[in-house]
Simulated scan of single mutants.
Amino acid sequence: MIRVRLFAGLRERAGWGEQQVPTPAGSPPPTPAHLWRQLALGETIPPQVRVAVNQSFAAADQQLQPGDEVAFLPPISGG
């Protein structure tokens, strides 16, 4: 399983904040970009959305392993 987390506006738009995604044996390792499409969040990750794997920023094409946590972080504004 891979834990996928959405934050802020992404969570509100999708209607969920966290999901567990199974990693079928024998299939190639998924990437954050693959999960984005699989979870019907869009065709591609928008350039302003940051990806984190296991709480470290990562590339959208990084191969994931069972037990990983992927977070999609929208731009944050504040003041």
Rank of each mutant, 00 (worst) to 15 (best):
M1Y: 07
M1I: 09
M1R: 11
I2C: 03
I2H: 00
I2V: 15
R3H: 10
R3Y: 02
V4E: 00
R5I: 10
R5E: 15
R5V: 10
L6G: 00
L6S: 03
F7I: 12
A8W: 04
A8L: 09
A8D: 06
G9A: 14
L10F: 07
L10K: 03
E12L: 08
E12A: 13
E12F: 08
E12C: 06
E12I: 12
A14S: 09
W16S: 10
W16H: 09
W16L: 14
G17D: 07
E18Y: 05
E18F: 11
E18S: 11
E18K: 08
Q19A: 15
Q19S: 11
Q20F: 08
Q20P: 00
V21T: 09
V21K: 01
P22D: 15
T23G: 04
T23E: 12
T23N: 03
P24G: 09
P24H: 08
P24T: 06
P24I: 06
P24Q: 13
A25T: 10
A25K: 12
G26W: 07
G26H: 09
G26P: 04
S27W: 06
S27Y: 05
P30D: 04
T31N: 10
P32Q: 07
P32K: 01
H34D: 13
H34K: 14
L35F: 02
L35R: 00
W36T: 00
W36N: 00
R37F: 03
Q38E: 14
Q38K: 12
Q38P: 01
L39N: 03
L39R: 04
L39H: 02
A40P: 00
G42H: 07
G42A: 08
T44F: 05
T44R: 14
T44V: 14
I45L: 05
P47I: 06
V49Q: 02
V49P: 00
V49T: 06
V49D: 00
R50S: 11
R50W: 02
V51H: 01
V51N: 02
V51W: 01
A52Q: 06
A52N: 05
V53C: 06
N54I: 13
N54H: 11
Q55K: 13
S56F: 07
S56L: 14
F57K: 05
F57W: 15
A58G: 08
A58R: 03
A59Y: 04
A60N: 06
A60T: 08
A60H: 02
D61M: 06
D61Q: 13
Q62R: 15
Q62F: 01
Q63R: 15
Q63K: 14
L64T: 01
Q65H: 14
P66A: 12
G67E: 11
G67M: 12
D68H: 07
V70R: 01
V70T: 04
V70Y: 01
V70N: 01
A71I: 06
A71W: 02
A71Y: 02
F72N: 03
F72Y: 13
F72V: 04
F72L: 08
F72Q: 00
L73F: 13
P74Q: 11
P74D: 08
P75C: 11
I76P: 03
S77T: 15
G78P: 09
G78E: 14
G79S: 13
G79H: 13
G79C: 10
